[in-house]
């Protein structure tokens, strides 16, 4: 239960072709993350799957059954919204119970399922409160609770953590991952946060202007980006993309090298450069280095590397970790 198949799905808003045509297979039990820059159509795609928007063309197949024309409630999917979309006048208990009540389930059964969900999500003490009396993380959990009680075929999350502070985000990220391990239900998760994508996903779908740029596991995308867009998008800090003589010498239009694959030294190396900015994080040091004939290169040193603005350093890219791209931006 929980495979979703998009066949030539497209979406047009008036004049704007937001999603030209997408084919995507999501397998049962997978944790799929949609990433991409703002406005690339992630939410739109998710809403198409949910049934909150009608497709302009193409088919959505859920568990082998054509669901293109089905209303949202009939698709058996549950969605967690960015704003949580809790019902403000209902208690936490009624919020979680709402989908069951709508399904006409009997009272005892509802109570049992609600308390089960509350236990899983650590909400037992808050069941009688109203959403406004909860913290952001608790609200988020209620929204998730409302989704899990229905035992849906798949969960849809639209940037669920973007309203939370950094520490809580890390926590909730783990909780959602754990929940996925526990429930083994298909999850589709929209985010523009790299770390969320890399840490949570079984499969990442990189979107750009409504097109799928690449689909693959986090490490596949990291190690074998199919094109310049994915290369630039996955990985933090961004991959250095170098054009000109250096690239030509390698037989490519553009050569990519990740900041972590550049060797640093104070006295010798392939490139000589001047540090413009050094960011000391303790665990890592990120440097922006101006290199003659190459441009600005970002490099990462593990641990502390004592340089300051204006210092001279030598860089040596790891030849085995170079990415080469042709004129069209495709990987060679």
């Amino acid at each position: 239960m929980g495979s979703i198949n998009l066949r030539n799905v497209s979406k047009v808003f008036g004049e704007a072709k937001v999603i030209p045509s997408i084919n995507l297979q999501i397998n049962e039990g997978e944790f799929v993350v949609f990433v991409g820059p703002s406005g690339c159509g992630k939410s739109t795609l998710l809403r198409l799957i949910a049934g909150l928007e009608d497709v302009s063309d193409g088919e959505i197949v859920i568990d082998g059954q054509n669901a293109t024309e089905l209303p949202p409630a009939k698709r058996g999917l549950a969605m967690v919204f960015q704003s949580y979309a809790l019902y403000p006048h209902m208690s936490v208990r009624s919020n979680i119970a709402f989908p069951l009540k709508m399904a006409g389930m009997d009272k005892g059964e509802i109570d049992r399922k609600v308390s089960d969900a509350a236990r899983v999500l650590n909400l037992t003490d808050y069941l009688e409160r109203k959403p406004r009396q909860l913290s952001g993380g608790q609200r988020q959990r209620v929204a998730i609770g409302r989704a899990i009680v229905r035992q849906p075929k798949a969960f849809l999350f639209d940037e669920p953590l973007s309203n939370l502070d950094a520490a809580l985000r890390v926590n909730m990220r783990l909780e959602i991952s754990e929940l996925h391990q526990q429930l083994k239900t298909t999850m589709i998760y929209v985010t523009h946060d790299q770390v969320e994508a890399m840490t949570m996903a079984d499969k990442i779908v990189v979107l750009n202007r409504g097109n799928i740029e690449q689909v693959g596991s986090p490490l596949e995308l990291y190690c074998k980006p199919a094109n310049l867009f994915v290369a630039g998008f996955i990985g933090s800090p961004r991959m250095n993309l170098i054009e000109g003589k250096f690239a030509e010498a390698k037989g490519a239009k553009t050569v990519g090298i990740r900041p972590e694959h550049i060797g640093l030294s104070r006295d010798s190396g392939l490139w000589e450069g001047t540090v413009t900015i050094a960011e000391h994080l303790g665990s890592d040091t990120f440097m922006h280095i101006q290199v003659q004939g190459v441009g600005t290169v970002t490099a990462r040193a593990s641990g502390e590397f004592w340089v300051r603005h204006g210092d001279r350093v030598y860089l040596t890219p790891d030849e085995t970790k170079l990415y080469r791209f042709n004129e069209k931006g495709l990987a060679l």
Partner: peptide, 10 residues
């Protein structure tokens, strides 16, 4: 979103 959530909740 609240209306949509209700819609998804059936």
């Amino acid at each position: 979103e609240q209306k949509e959530a209700a819609e998804m909740d059936g």
